[in-house]
């Protein structure tokens, strides 16, 4: 519209025609992508909402049942197992990845010869295929002769955990693997945040006699707050929807010890063909992610107000 304003007001018909041309030209650019996007993302997304209120197994015709699927959910013990496991995973994955990523970024935010190589190395696990990552870590975690347990034994742990072979330690094994894989990605975000902190702040604090710990507490952490917030939101979303790593590494086992919500959606919907019921689980998953994100935004606002 800017160009219309700067020109002397033209007659109404050509302006109208031009507006129409704008619409046509604009849509012609967007359409090729939009067709695919609408058909394969938007429609399934809306359908997922509707399906949650429908009883539909692959053999029968769909039937509107209101909240039945959700009532069934409340009686489904497996659902609560999956919910608890998902929370467990999130409770481990979010803080550990945050700490590891921040630690990496602090260690690598230096002007040293060769630091680029180390940054590259730290980032590489993130783009390594999940299958390779899972295969390697499953062997590292081998209970009897795996390097992890051999190192633990050398450090004096007489009875090291059986990791993916035990119901108690399978989830920690998954969490350690996922922290190792994801920390490089969040490190990149933290590095960007660290490099935006004006050097004068640290210089001034040093002149005033602040030691390294004080500078970290009083300057680095407060200045990093926007980055940290963003990283926590991303980590939360990522944790609650975890699926592929679990499918490849433990497939939910042993027993149901690593079964997570997204995997239950997959099993109920695609393996068992219970389209309606699985969509109800998916909706719960989505609402959890949305709620946590909104709460985080609120908390962040309140803290910034102070």
């Amino acid at each position: 519209m800017a160009q219309v304003i700067t020109q002397p007001a033209p007659e109404t018909p050509p302006r109208k025609r031009r507006a129409w041309r704008g619409v046509l030209v604009g849509w012609s650019f967007i359409l090729p992508n939009f067709l695919g996007f609408a058909l394969f993302t938007l429609v399934p997304m809306l359908a997922a909402f509707a399906l949650a209120f429908v009883d539909w197994d692959s053999y029968r015709t769909p039937e509107w049942v209101g909240l039945d699927n959700f009532q069934r959910l409340l009686r489904d013990e497996t659902f609560f197992v999956a919910l608890r496991n998902t929370l467990y995973y999130a409770a481990g994955h979010i803080p550990l990845t945050l700490a590891a990523a921040l630690g990496l970024a602090l260690a690598l935010n230096r002007r040293l010869r060769g630091v680029g190589f180390f940054r590259t190395a730290a980032f590489f696990p993130y783009i390594t295929s999940l299958v390779a990552v899972a295969v390697v870590w499953n062997m590292l975690f081998n209970p009897t002769a795996g390097p992890v347990n051999q190192i633990l034994q050398a450090l004096g742990v007489d009875d090291p955990p059986r990791w993916a072979a035990s119901t108690d330690w399978a989830m920690p094994a998954v969490i350690i693997t996922s922290v190792w894989r994801d920390m490089g990605y969040y490190m990149v975000l933290f590095l960007a945040g660290l490099q935006a902190i004006p050097k004068e702040y640290h210089e001034a604090a040093r002149v005033d006699g602040a030691n390294a710990w004080h500078r970290f507490r009083r300057i680095t952490l407060p200045c990093l707050r926007p980055t940290t917030f963003f990283v926590v939101v991303m980590l939360t979303i990522q944790s609650f929807k975890v699926l592929d790593l679990i499918v490849v590494m433990t497939d939910g086992g042993p027993g149901r010890s690593t079964l997570v919500l997204a995997q239950l959606v997959y099993r109920e919907g695609i393996t068992e063909g219970r389209f309606g019921y699985s969509s109800a689980i998916a909706l719960v998953l989505f609402v959890i992610v949305l709620t946590v994100t909104v709460v985080q935004f609120r908390l962040n606002e309140r803290r910034s107000d102070r």
């Binding site: 993302t41 938007l42 399934p44 997922a48 609650f240 997204a262 919907g269 969509s279």
Partner: peptide, 20 residues
């Protein structure tokens, strides 16, 4: 609308996609 879909986890609509 484009941006909003980025926020929805793919896991939440993989089943309708599969049905399609």
């Amino acid at each position: 609308a484009y941006i909003a879909t980025i926020a929805v986890p793919w896991q939440a609509y993989m089943v309708p996609q599969y049905i399609m």
